[in-house]
């Protein structure tokens, strides 16, 4: 449904999107995952014809986003980041306006608006201006507007950012329902969101795709490796070189060193390296008091951290 080929976008001398290629087949919900400034929003803006690419191409349902921009736009419902809306319009009035912009005949507009109000549960808010709504309701109005022309493709930029946990659950549930019949790209930097709503994840960092697969595949990337958290009564400066010296350890990350003379670490190692015993012996030899140690297999979150750290380009 969506094909993105070798997409490049520069802002002055910085490269925001660097040779990005991916496909989204019909009916799939794809999570676009990456830290802030990774190029998620820029990619979405190119897909939705808001910005042109410097190189590469995007096609939606076979239509080129540059040459057949209008055909692409008709097929897409786009919710920009933080759901910008006309604050002084009423909910119904706004949805009617969007229906008009989407070329829905005036006779059908009211029916569509009513259905959107139902789907997005906007009933109690119909008398209010958008500016008076809570953030959660505003997000729902934004979603209702993106759905009103029954688009085949939805592009949602951080649909749950700035919401409280209850609202996040509601919006996620809504996206899950909608996702049964539509092709969706949604961006986020929150991992549980991807696990909860998406069938596939594209991890992007510094404008490049660093991973592309189902959530299971990504978690499997961590297969055979484990992460160990340990706290010792030793200063960070003293402990780090010794930890790095332990055989079999792949990476060492300082979690906290708030109290003087104590530090908390996370180390990643092959799961068969018997790392617990090695760390215990290290602590004994160095005379550190060991106050915490537990081992688990890598979560999606750690896979993400692994993928998006390091390899900083100048």
């Amino acid at each position: 449904m969506i094909e993105v080929r070798n997409l490049v976008k520069r802002y002055g001398s910085t490269v925001a999107v660097d040779d990005v290629t991916f496909d989204v087949p019909k009916g799939e919900v794809v999570g676009f995952l990456g830290p802030n400034g990774a190029g998620k929003t820029t990619t979405m803006r190119i897909v939705t014809c808001y910005l042109p690419a410097d190189a590469g191409r995007v096609t939606v349902d076979g239509y080129d986003s540059f040459e057949h921009s209008m055909d692409v736009r008709r097929r897409i419902g786009y919710l920009p980041e933080s759901a910008p809306l006309y604050q002084d319009m009423g909910v119904i009035e706004y949805l009617r306006f969007v229906a008009g912009m989407r070329g829905i005949p005036s006779g059908e507009r009211d029916g569509r608006v009513r259905r959107m109000v139902e789907i997005c549960a906007l009933g109690p808010m119909l008398q209010k201006d958008i500016g008076q709504l809570s953030k959660g309701y505003r997000q729902r109005v934004g979603l209702a507007a993106t759905l009103i022309h029954d688009p085949e493709v939805l592009v949602l930029d951080e649909p749950t950012s700035g919401l409280d946990p209850n609202q996040i659950m509601e919006i996620r549930e809504l996206i899950r329902q909608i996702g049964r019949e539509k092709t969706i790209i949604l961006s986020t930097h929150i991992l549980p969101e991807v696990e909860a709503t998406c069938s596939r994840v594209i991890v992007i960092n510094e404008g490049r795709i660093v991973a592309d697969g189902t959530t299971e595949e990504l978690t499997r990337m961590s297969a055979g490796r484990a992460t160990t958290v340990l706290s010792v009564r030793a200063s960070a400066a003293a402990a780090e070189p010794k930890l790095r010296g332990v055989e079999g350890i792949e990476s060492v990350r300082l979690l906290e060193d708030g109290t003087p003379g104590a530090s908390r670490w996370e180390v990643v190692s092959p799961s068969n390296a018997d790392i617990g015993a090695k760390l215990f012996h290290l602590a004994v030899e160095s005379g550190w008091v060991l106050t915490e140690m537990h081992t688990a297999s890598l979560s999606l979150e750690q896979v993400f951290l692994e993928l998006t750290k390091g390899e900083k380009r100048p």
């Binding site: 014809c49 808001y50 920009p80 912009m101």
Partner: peptide, 13 residues
């Protein structure tokens, strides 16, 4: 308000 991004991604020149 950032609504240009809405307005100019509608099917409108």
């Amino acid at each position: 308000l950032g609504t240009t991004e809405l307005l100019l991604t509608f099917p409108v020149e």
